[in-house]
Simulated scan of single mutants.
Amino acid sequence: MTHATAALADAGQPAGFDWPFFWHYLFSPSGAFLDGLWRTVYISVIAQLLGVLLGFAVALAQRSRFAPLRWGGRIYVWLIRGTPLLVQLVLVYNGLAAAGIYRFADLQVGGLVLLGVVQAAILTLAVNEAAYMAEIFRAALDAIDPGQAEAAQALGMTPAMTMRVVLLPQAIRIIVPPLGNEFNLMMKSTSLLSVIGLQEMFLTAQSINSATFKTFEIFLVAACYYLALTTVWSFVQRFIERRLADPGQVIAAPSLRERLTGGGLGRTAGREDATLVGKEAH
């Protein structure tokens, strides 16, 4: 029996779902909860952007003619994808400090203060995401007919120009669906940041629960907000896919209903979709 249940029993009141508490926090969340929500959003966006850039660099390294770069990219992907994000967070924030290697200190930029724990969170999420984005980029580039790159070189284009003008625009159409799913996953993965003490939405809900003992109610509120974030992003992703779609090509993209109810690309499908496309192209 929890303290809250015992208190209600002593007062002669049955323990049950507190609807007024739930509706209050759902439609009138506290300032602390809104701060946690804001951290969840901006950490997700920054980490995803950095993960895409780093993932693209790793994908290029894997396609390099130089063996050290190829093996370096492969080892990076193997190492990051083979270890849990939770362990990586603890190693980066707590482990580096405990070993005396590096301690994340608060960083002041102008009038803004970037907490050390936020820096560690963004860095770890970006490094983790880059390993998955590298595979998505690599497979998408492999799915493009090699003859197009050869034709571009025959026209006198440099490798960098070939990538920018010929290959990358086509690869983006393949990358966008799994990229959107990765960002969806990123927003939900921020709940793991509570393990290093970052006061994002999940840890804020835990703090409210510790003060009110309304466990089911407050975490249901948090679940509703996570659901709202991922639903909004589903609309954004669908809009981006339609804008980037080739007018002369029919793309069998999942409908919005399929995205919201699980009929579209899931985590595994999203991460392996581009790889399968690449294999089929060869």
Rank of each mutant, 00 (worst) to 15 (best):
L265K: 07
N181C: 04
V87D: 03
V90L: 14
R138E: 00
L54W: 06
I80V: 15
H3N: 08
Q249K: 13
A59I: 11
A149C: 12
G55I: 14
A105W: 00
Q119K: 14
E182R: 15
V221H: 11
D145S: 15
W71R: 13
G111D: 12
Y225C: 03
L114W: 07
N94V: 03
A139G: 01
G180N: 06
L34E: 03
H282N: 05
V41Q: 12
D145E: 15
L276N: 13
C224Q: 03
Q62R: 15
A7P: 05
A131T: 04
T40R: 00
L229P: 00
P14C: 07
I208T: 14
R70Y: 10
S189D: 15
V90M: 14
G270N: 08
M157Y: 09
L107W: 09
S255A: 04
L203I: 12
F137R: 02
L198N: 04
L54K: 04
A120P: 00
E182P: 08
P68F: 04
I43A: 13
L276G: 05
P159A: 10
T5L: 07
L167Y: 03
L115W: 12
L79Q: 08
A269K: 00
I172H: 06
A99M: 12
R39H: 12
I196P: 07
E129H: 05
T275E: 07
A211Y: 13
P20D: 12
Q88F: 11
T40F: 08
Y226K: 14
M157S: 05
F183M: 13
D142K: 07
G95T: 07
R70T: 12
V118L: 05
S189R: 14
G12N: 09
S234Y: 08
Q119F: 10
R242W: 02
N181D: 05
A97C: 03
A152L: 12
A228C: 07
L167E: 02
R257W: 11
T215F: 03
R138C: 01
L179C: 11
L179P: 11
M186I: 12
Q119N: 11
L276P: 06
A149V: 07
L185H: 12
Q48P: 00
A223E: 01
I136F: 00
G270M: 11
P20H: 04
